[in-house]
Write a protein that binds this DNA or RNA. Structure first.
Lengths: 148, 148
DNA sequence: AGCACTTGTATAGCAAGCTATGCAATGCTA
DNA sequence: TAGCATTGCATAGCTTGCTATACAAGTGCT
């Protein structure tokens, strides 16, 4: 049985994701942010007032995880959740002033982490890498419509 | 501030790692295995009797996580941990017969998941993708000596 | 209108990741 | 040899991911 962990995409992806997450976590910790809040914040910075369901769909994250993440974010003063006016089941998520103020430093941290972690690749290789990842995501069953 | 999540390596890696983990998890569940046990099993299938510390180093996983994972594996009858003969602090990890018997089906599952998830890439692109990931790992501060 | 079905969200539980801490064993130095 | 520093591992706690379940609100059908 021929199996080499460093030839396995699944193994390498898990390892890389952990490396990046550690790096990002260290950079955003001084901002009082954690990695799990980041994707949600990215969406909300673009469009405030999204429903939890919209976040779930856009980010391909399970509903229960999102509910828990949003609870923590509300606990930490990043968001508030308010019931939608026309549908009593729906919660809309609104950013706090604090969260809005964190946009620039948080994004700087993420860009710096990406730059740092990819510094061993040439500019062309970096583009290739990103393009290949995009393609795998688009062609996998986990694809989220309109991911861009 | 120009930030697009689908241009961010960190974001894409987190997403891909989750997609692969979901797929692998579903495939190894019937074997009674979970994704976190997989890397440790891979190492132990190659070399039985490794210490926890060796596993931690080889896999770039934090000691506490490894201790907990090994506890669960022992609970599930996959391994046993025994004190080293010459150093009272050291625990050596030994595979059970059950774990040995799971090697072939588990590796088949992983190979199938990789093949499936990467099916949208050509053979050349797949090689490129793996090579790029290897390179990022090797050049990052998370590199593990002799990873192969 | 009443009921069955669907939808959106919260909660419980487990795994897997990390940081922090504690304790026993070992190694080093005066 | 004794004291201190270091090492290996277990445990606590939190976050982040998933599956499963429960409940209320909403929708659609008869």
């Amino acid at each position: 049985m021929e199996f080499r962990k460093n030839q396995s995409a699944g193994y390498l992806l898990n390892h890389l994701a952990r490396i990046f997450a550690r790096g990002l976590s260290a950079r955003i910790k001084p901002l009082g942010l954690t990695t799990g809040t980041f994707p949600a914040l990215l969406e909300l910075w673009e469009t405030d007032g999204l429903t939890q369901k919209q976040l779930v769909e856009r980010l391909d994250i399970e509903q229960a995880t999102m509910a828990n993440t949003l609870s923590r974010m509300e606990r930490d003063g990043l968001i508030s959740r308010r019931k939608d006016e026309s549908d009593g089941r729906v919660q809309r998520v609104w950013l706090s002033e604090r969260a809005r103020a964190l946009r620039a430093p948080a994004i700087s941290a993420a860009l710096a982490e990406n730059e740092d972690a990819l510094s061993g690749l040439s500019a062309v290789e970096q583009q290739q890498f990103v393009a290949l990842m995009q393609k795998v995501i688009e062609t996998s069953s986990g694809a989220v419509d309109g991911e861009r």
